[in-house]
């Protein structure tokens, strides 16, 4: 499973959807993932890729980790995995 598939699977599980129903342009709000769902998804992403996601729930906009859409999250996770080497 590549990064896109794995992130999609994690978000789908959180949103109680099939992975096929999670489209790249969807936002977290579209998927019905609230703030608690987001931190739980980030935890699952960190566990799955063994990375540390720079995300601060106090001010999500301030962090480098782009959560504006599914595609943005996949891209950000991809960068973190690459950076880790």
């Amino acid at each position: 499973m590549n990064v896109a598939q794995q992130v999609t699977r994690i978000l789908a599980e959180q949103a109680l959807l099939e992975p096929g129903d999670v489209t790249p342009d969807a936002t977290l709000a579209d998927l019905g993932i609230d703030s608690l769902g987001l931190v739980e998804s980030i935890f699952a992403i960190e566990e799955a890729f063994d990375i540390s996601v720079p995300f601060n729930a106090n001010d999500p906009a301030e962090t480098d980790f782009d959560i504006s859409s599914v595609a943005a999250i996949i891209s950000a996770v991809g960068d973190l995995v690459k950076a880790q080497g």
């Binding site: 608690l36 931190v39 739980e40």
Partner: peptide, 11 residues
């Protein structure tokens, strides 16, 4: 402590 994990569930 026992498993030495550095990351815990958010809830």
């Amino acid at each position: 402590y026992e498993e030495g994990k550095n990351r815990v569930h958010p809830f």
